[in-house]
Write a protein that binds this DNA or RNA. Structure first.
Lengths: 223, 223
DNA sequence: TTCAATACGATATAAAAATATCGATATAAA
DNA sequence: TTTATATCGATATTTTTATATCGTATTGAA
């Protein structure tokens, strides 16, 4: 009868939770658990069981009562939903300290991401190899990105340079930009931008630090 | 009559947008603009004007028709709401590449944050000074953090070490933890955790890259 | 074989957030 | 002075997301 509850568009918050589920499922699978129950995941992650159940249901894999979901199937489905099943190569722009930190992050491979080449405006870095990735001058960006047909650009330059570099990436035919600069980029439609703003995250923290400052120390977050 | 619309708790999405507004307001003020209109901000940031207006209203500063809001007052109010008006010192745990990148980030001062001391388990780093911040061994963490009465901990260690380091920070009396490790920390109530998960951000990007792949190129994001 | 418990699936309700609409007010131009 | 308009403030509506509830299927134990 095939009556899967599968809306064509997954809710954004669900997408954001998928990597969290995926990590947990992978860990359990590595531990030899062939099946994962949504309730167990919810308990481990401190989330509402219903929420987890709904999220998993939207991945398309069915679960069996008293057993849970096949962890292998879940892992595959989550990866597919995220587009992490086939590794895609990216170009990193800005080989400063943040750029280098990203170059050194081993976890990207598990997230379908591999940095193929880096660019930097500083001539001193030209030709340098950082963690197995060669740094190229900016003037080669459009040509190289196009030749390697990279779909993704990672922007780790100072905010003054961000828009100009983004324009180069777009000119090179990139489909998405992961922007670490605290700037609202002006990008033509068709290219997806995801901002990674430290300030936004810090805002939530320091605000709740400010407000939840004095009150009673005994108060559970989740009942 | 004093009928300010001021809910005691600001919506989380509003909090997240505050740093974005703040940056824009600061830039305009630096350019000599004494007043900022919500409509202009909305246009600059690509947001809905009503949304911006509501967000700004919740900061408590009133705007005047045909003029806008006083940019000085707005800046102060936003900073106050975020708790960025008085700089607070933080402890950084994990002086690896990501930790160093954060140590090198100049923007933190504008966000009310200053890293006072760093810790790392690697004895080779003991005593090293990075960007003016001394690296200390882990065994000194609780004592030093307590003595400096630091309220905030920044966690940039590998995921295996994250929970143990978080426990140390909590033991040292920290009120909030900014967690860059991809782990769900188990933290007692009273201590606020804000996760900065690269994977979650990348998830949104690669998913929309995946879904919005083939369709028509001409499609505006905001009408 | 029967029964109880677990965990899923679906529906319903509630909460939160974004968007739309309308009226009021202060400023600048006529 | 008058009038038009930009812009705010408030209310209403819609959409999105989260939570609660109920029924049912499957398994493992009695």
């Amino acid at each position: 009868m095939e009556a899967k509850l599968r809306p064509d568009a997954l809710p954004l918050p669900t997408i954001r939770r998928y990597p969290v589920y995926l990590r947990a499922v992978r860990a359990r699978r590595a531990r030899g658990e062939a099946n994962v129950s949504s309730a167990a995941l919810a308990a481990e992650l401190g989330l509402d069981p219903v929420l987890v159940r709904k999220d998993l249901a939207m991945s398309g894999v069915a679960g069996k009562p008293r057993v849970g979901h096949s962890s292998a199937a879940l892992e595959a489905a989550l990866e597919a939903a995220l587009g992490w099943d086939n590794v895609s190569d990216a170009a990193l722009v800005g080989a400063g300290s943040l750029g280098r930190a990203l170059l050194g992050y081993r976890g990207f491979r598990e997230q379908g991401l591999s940095i193929a080449v880096a660019f930097d405006g500083d001539p001193a870095l030209d030709g340098l190899e950082i963690r197995g990735v060669r740094v190229r001058p900016m003037k080669d960006l459009v040509r190289l990105v196009r030749r390697l047909s990279l779909r993704l650009g990672i922007l780790t330059v100072p905010e003054e340079a961000a828009q100009a570099c983004a324009d180069l990436l777009v000119a090179a035919g990139v489909r998405g930009i992961w922007n670490f600069a605290p700037v609202q980029l002006d990008i033509p439609p068709g290219v997806v931008v995801q901002n990674m703003d430290l300030a936004q995250s810090l805002a939530v923290l320091s605000h709740s630090l400010e407000t939840a400052a004095i009150p009673s120390p005994a108060r559970a977050r989740r009942p």
